[in-house]
């Protein structure tokens, strides 16, 4: 089995469909063509740049360059994860919470994969370390930001419920337990949906890529399962860490509800 190598012309042909959309947008006055043009241009430039960078780093096999790329990817993920929620914790709390949750869960999942299942040589080989970290990061930051949004928005909305319990002498952990469980469940919903739909509703991305690149479907599925297990495990961990850290920042030594530490973005 060999892969069909794409030529630049093939990509231009694929863009013809978008050109049709653009023409429709102009003809029907939908005002879509501008955004779609920008998004398309951005996608192509972004990916070509990444491709070029990855090719260089893979060839160089430099630990410093690998670490640099992983650091940039992680920082972007943390920034996005912290910025999405509608509420902000005081003293850059969103960054601290998302940073610890996304960083720790991703590092754990990536190290687990690189030292056990994949075992490339060296273990940080960029060809493995970068894509594995990337796919786990993408899922962990999405989960963390949804969970954080759930905890912060939920605490603000359920102030009367939480304080009713505090006023009766319940612990802060008991008073916020249902809120945290709910936020974690909501945060994990996309990952759980992705797992349930895998292969039935859509062929997941990794598998699609490997099959198109000429791999045997069973081999592609094994990779897909490995990555899915890693990203689900890391995401659940990220959700739990996020909820607990965020809750800790919403209380104090007297187990009060400290909504004064919360601002709306």
């Amino acid at each position: 089995m060999s892969a069909i190598v794409l030529q630049p012309g093939d990509l231009v042909t694929a863009a013809a469909l978008l050109a049709l959309d653009g023409a429709l947008s102009v003809a029907l006055g939908l005002g879509l063509h501008r955004v779609m043009l920008i998004a398309t241009a951005r996608l192509v430039v972004q990916l070509l740049l990444i491709g070029a960078v990855l090719r260089t780093v893979f060839r160089s096999e430099s630990a410093a360059a690998t670490l640099g790329i992983l650091a940039v990817m992680t920082l972007v993920a943390i920034r996005e994860g912290a910025a999405r929620p509608r509420h902000r914790l005081a003293r850059h709390g969103n960054y601290a919470v998302a940073g610890l949750a996304v960083g720790a869960s991703t590092a754990l999942a990536a190290l687990l994969a690189l030292t056990t299942a994949l075992r490339p040589d060296p273990w940080w080989n960029p060809r493995y370390a970068i894509p594995v970290t990337g796919i786990v990061l993408g899922s962990a930051f999405g989960t963390a930001s949804l969970t954080l949004d759930g905890v912060l928005g939920g605490a603000a909305a359920a102030r009367a419920e939480i304080e009713a319990r505090l006023a009766l002498g319940h612990s802060f952990a008991a008073a916020t337990g249902p809120l945290l469980a709910d936020a974690i469940r909501r945060g994990l919903m996309p990952v759980l949906n992705q797992m349930a739909a895998a292969g039935l509703v859509t062929l997941p991305g990794t598998m699609t890529g490997q099959i198109l690149a000429g791999s045997d479907p069973i081999e592609a599925v094994k990779y897909q399962i490995l990555l899915m297990l890693l990203l689900a495990g890391a995401s659940a961990l990220a959700a739990i860490i996020t909820a607990r850290l965020a809750a800790r920042r919403l209380t104090d030594g007297r187990q009060r509800l400290r909504l004064d530490r919360l601002a709306t973005a």
Partner: peptide, 12 residues
């Protein structure tokens, strides 16, 4: 905090 609030209960 909870030990105090169990003895001194606030009803809003």
């Amino acid at each position: 905090g909870p030990d105090w609030r169990r003895r001194v209960v606030y009803a809003p």
